[in-house]
């Protein structure tokens, strides 16, 4: 039986490597056909912002990789509303991540779900394994 895996992202990209190496685990983990979710809270929400440009810092911009997650059947991406608001951000500041639902004639659906802290607490409670980054 598939386990519920939650990837918990709490750190901003580039300043440290955690965000990038978390994404690498997600991509490899997708092949294991478990029930995968990602959560972005605290500075983790900065990972998903639009308009990242790393030309001036000599590092690879890995933000486009998030838009490939849908192709890996990773389509439950929870962003905590309070974390976004505390940072003066809205959903419009984040990339528009989508996936195609095979069961509904490949209809395009949103991957990101904005959830309140209370809703996220329930989602976390329901997980079997939490991977923290």
């Amino acid at each position: 039986m598939a386990k519920k895996f939650m990837y918990m992202n709490t750190k901003a990209p580039y300043g440290t490597i955690y965000a990038l190496e978390s994404l690498e685990v997600v991509l490899i983990g997708a092949a294991f056909e478990q029930d995968v979710s990602l959560a972005f809270i605290d500075d983790g929400v900065y990972q998903l912002t639009k308009g990242q440009n790393t030309d001036g810092i000599g590092m690879k911009n890995f933000s486009p990789t998030y838009s490939a997650l849908g192709d890996y059947d990773v389509n439950k991406i929870y962003v905590e509303k309070e974390s976004l608001e505390e940072r003066g951000l809205t959903l419009d500041d984040l990339q528009h991540l989508t996936w195609e639902d095979e069961d509904e004639d490949w209809a395009e659906k949103d991957s990101i779900k904005l959830v309140s802290r209370a809703e996220l607490a329930d989602i976390l409670d329901d997980q079997d394994v939490v991977l923290s980054f």
């Binding site: 386990k3 895996f5 983990g29 394994v129």
Partner: peptide
């Protein structure tokens, strides 16, 4: 990295 996922499973 699959070894980490397998450990979780």
């Amino acid at each position: 990295l699959g070894q980490l996922i397998e450990a979780g499973i």
